[in-house]
Design a protein around this nucleic acid. Sequence first.
DNA 1: GACAAAGCAGACAAAATAGTCTTAATACTT
DNA 2: AAGTATTAAGACTATTTTGTCTGCTTTGTC
Lengths: 150, 150
Amino acid sequence: MLLSKRCIYALRAALYLALAKTDGEYISIQKIASELNISFHFLTKILQDLQRKNLVISFRGPRGGVALARPDTEITSMDIIRAINGEDVFAQCIMGLPGCGTETPCPMHEDWARSRKAIETVFNNTSLATLAEQTVKKHLRLTEPKARTE
Amino acid sequence: MLLSKRCIYALRAALYLALAKTDGEYISIQKIASELNISFHFLTKILQDLQRKNLVISFRGPRGGVALARPDTEITSMDIIRAINGEDVFAQCIMGLPGCGTETPCPMHEDWARSRKAIETVFNNTSLATLAEQTVKKHLRLTEPKARTE
DNA sequence: GACAAAGCAGACAAAATAGTCTTAATACTT
DNA sequence: AAGTATTAAGACTATTTTGTCTGCTTTGTC
């Protein structure tokens, strides 16, 4: 698995918020969790992480919940990934050698650097708005497909 | 971390074997473990996995050890990765949605498919021979850089 | 002010991954 | 045949990640 579950859940929740388009309103974590089929408490902690990184804001009490801290056009999937999995998720040497860098590369350094670049570009260029737009335009789904009852 | 530690160790060990170029001789796991600074018992299990996938062969007793099962030109890093982390390491949906596919894609499907392709290409085109060649030609290192004693 | 609806915080439990140890089985050497 | 060097196998432990629970705090409503 490329991304951790925390990270995947964070991406899905953020996209959910982007799709919600509630001007000024907050959405309860409970609702997000149940719609996305993620454990409520677990998602709470993940969203708290996003909050600490100033990607979402939250509000307590009735009609409280969470919302994106910035317009969805200004949050990239990379922002989410870095917030959860750390700044250097993709920076690390593919062969796990601590000192790997341009001066003392590991044998895979060059090849990996190129494909890492490709990955980073994708995530950097994919804002939540982009994802939301895709989702709407192509009638895509955010949750797991319903089990067919035949 | 993109690849698991098992996988990284497996890659390093396989490359070590490719570099060894002992015609017909076996190299003891003990030696590989100590040179690559990997736990001996842990590496043993990893190499056993590679053996079950017919990537290495082993021999017991004095002068025993392990060796590549095929010429290093015929083993790709993807072979190692798949052997350790499963056939579908990179096949999985980036957003973790089980039913994600061309008919019912997740919102990231298209973008991710492209960069996944790039990753797969790199690993598929990188044989152990290629890595070994790089290592020799550029005087690269396989182990961690020595701590400088100044 | 009492109550209810939310997020917050931290302890706890379960599962996955990583790593260790002990005992066997095998093969060479003398 | 005995001793030694090696992998094989499986039990065990440790660490990290994932997930759960319980109680607390904040905020709105009546």
